[in-house]
Design a protein around this nucleic acid. Sequence first.
DNA 1: AAACCTTGTTTACTATAATGAAAATAGTTT
DNA 2: AAACTATTTTCATTATAGTAAACAAGGTTT
Lengths: 192, 192
Amino acid sequence: MERPPKIGKNIQQLRNSQGFTLNVLSERSGVSKAMLSQIESDKVNPTVATVWKIAQGLSVEIHALLAGSVVPKRKFLINRYENITTLDTDAEGVHVHVLSPLSMVEDLEMYILSFEPKSRLDSEAHFPKTEEFLTVVKGHVRVKAGENVGDLKKGDFITYHCDVDHTIENIGNSEAKVHLVVRYNQQIDTTL
Amino acid sequence: MERPPKIGKNIQQLRNSQGFTLNVLSERSGVSKAMLSQIESDKVNPTVATVWKIAQGLSVEIHALLAGSVVPKRKFLINRYENITTLDTDAEGVHVHVLSPLSMVEDLEMYILSFEPKSRLDSEAHFPKTEEFLTVVKGHVRVKAGENVGDLKKGDFITYHCDVDHTIENIGNSEAKVHLVVRYNQQIDTTL
DNA sequence: AAACCTTGTTTACTATAATGAAAATAGTTT
DNA sequence: AAACTATTTTCATTATAGTAAACAAGGTTT
């Protein structure tokens, strides 16, 4: 996005798709229909509060209205096993395979983690709102996130927030392997 | 988010974290420092265009500034293998394990797909901007997305947009298994 | 086709976002 | 601590977002 987003079309499209008239949306959102009309034709420069009220009336996130009409780039990227970068962690016996090359996706990272017997990976609290999604591919692991603990076996799935210290450890006596998705919600949280 | 977002703290925090003064940010963004000061203390109700300019000056997406200060719910949800819902698809020999229960995550879905020999899964074009991230856990598969084709073996990773018809098929003579992440970018696209 | 209704636009006005300059506050140096 | 500098806040003014009411355009009904 190189210039301020034109949100008029987005709003109009959403309004029409839900079959709302300007009057209806005006009632639902608390924004005058005159303003709605002008916003839809990009004649004015609405405030955040107004756009937010419109989003409420349309039952969508404000992001949906601000999204620029960017032509989707059609992606088709293969990352071969032999090309996958393998990080050796500071933790003994833990190997990290980075599936998603950096900048492939804005806010998602995917890894395969392999744990030798009795090895563990300690992570400090990430940025607020970061969450991890872990699927056990092989073996037995224990996941701790803050106060919480869970033992998992092959095929189990867990999701947790990682704004607290968390660890993954191999509790079996053979190699363990997990598939890990980390989502960075780069939203700023002021409550911390 | 139940009321219009208070963006002042977000901006101030980001500005400070980058070591910018109001003057610097004013120059970088083209917004007067007086306005910046008032916005940061939530005394005014800025325009979308203004907030967007500030985001530019801070080198972040506008979304980062609008994010509400919601207290993060700390998630720790385990989905045991035996409880995982298994869908039998219309496709013969393809089994879908839904790792992430619906509504666990807004816009991410995770699956383990198992393919008996010679089986395949055809998917129609999803909503615009949907992307899939596939890791081969076992066996050999061929992925097609529109014009593109790729053969993958265990450990390979691929990401592709799926606003076109796409298929995943087992091209080996034993069971194949893949880990699939689907991300629904529910942003509105006006160019279609 | 005139009267009526429904939906969207334009107009006149008010409230307030945005600006530049001045005042205040905080932080350093002599 | 006074003098100086850097940073933020307040003030007075201008530009414009937002509103309510009138207007215009399209479609139905009688």
